[in-house]
């Protein structure tokens, strides 16, 4: 198979979305850890109610980008950031935006499941109780709804008061997703959500992701290209902190514009 020469423009194909159809708009994002650059001049739009996957080699900045989307970098004073991120048209770094509220709207699920050391029920109700002002009955309903949405309800319905740490890894990850859904986010960021799970649990989580896109915007970081191909609608390929190519998933995987992209997805990276 002939290898394409990297003579095409340095940047590959781009899908673009109108501001009306996009949920997140990232423009000119530069991010450095101390003096080490992690993201360079990143610009892209994430479509609403679709699954968008970020792929790329380790250290390419895809997780960093994800954490920037709900301002988790705020905790780390070594991180310097420039550029703009807009959620539904509003700059997330604007002074009137409360970071806690932003994080409620932009939920995040991490690589390793991180249930709190409390009961299953309390885990799901955790975020709701933070918001306050809800009756017990209402919390019960939302917990059930969230667990059902995360396809976990049948497995835990009779032991809601058991410790969350007694669940299996795959169940824990779905519990974390339920916990995030319960606070009613608009965007769900998933940072390699299946990398610590066995194949069957992985399939369940992927199915869940596909089901959730009817009501949520999902952003998925993964190093598993089959997974990206299976669940995402659009895929962005990042390398060395730069966005290389961003296209509908089918296009990117079957007909990548750039040799760099093709080398990566066919496993010929140096």
């Amino acid at each position: 198979m002939p290898v394409k020469q990297d003579t095409a423009p340095r940047r590959g194909a781009f899908v673009d979305f109108t501001p009306e159809t996009s949920c997140l708009e990232i423009s000119g994002l530069d991010l450095r850890y101390g003096d080490k650059p992690a993201l360079r001049d990143l610009t892209l739009r994430v479509p609403r109610h679709r699954v968008t996957a970020f792929i790329g080699p380790s250290g390419c900045g895809k997780s960093t980008l994800l954490r920037a989307l709900n301002r988790l970098h705020d905790l780390n004073e070594d991180v310097q950031m420039e550029g703009e991120i807009r959620l539904e048209g509003q700059d997330i770094h604007a002074p009137e935006v409360a970071v806690a509220e932003l994080r409620r709207r932009v939920g995040m699920v991490f690589q390793a499941p991180n249930p709190f050391p409390m009961s299953i029920y309390d885990n799901v109700a955790f975020g709701l109780r933070l918001q306050g002002g809800l009756r017990k009955r209402r919390i019960d309903d939302i917990v059930e709804w969230a667990l059902r949405s995360a396809a976990l309800w049948e497995e835990v319905e009779d032991r809601l008061q058991a410790s969350a740490w007694s669940l299996s890894g795959g169940q824990q990850q779905r519990l974390v997703i339920a916990r995030t859904l319960a606070v009613g986010p608009e965007v769900l960021l998933l940072d390699e959500p299946a990398s610590a799970l066995d194949p069957i649990s992985t399939l369940k989580v992927e199915e869940l992701i596909r089901n959730l896109k009817s009501s949520l915007t999902l952003v998925l970081v993964t190093h598993n290209m089959q997974q990206a191909a299976r669940v995402s609608d659009y895929t962005a390929f990042l390398q060395d902190g730069e966005l290389v190519e961003y296209a509908p998933t089918d296009t990117l995987f079957t007909n990548p514009r750039l040799a760099r992209t093709e080398n990566y997805i066919t496993g010929r990276m140096a």
């Binding site: 995040m108 975020g127 933070l130 916990r179």
Partner: peptide
């Protein structure tokens, strides 16, 4: 582990809530 802290923050907890409800217990 840091992921416990991040988990709380990602659910919209403030730092005080993260400390008092997850970390300190």
């Amino acid at each position: 582990p840091d992921r416990q802290r991040e988990g709380a923050l990602a659910l919209g907890a403030t730092r005080l809530e993260m400390l008092s409800r997850v970390v300190l217990p």
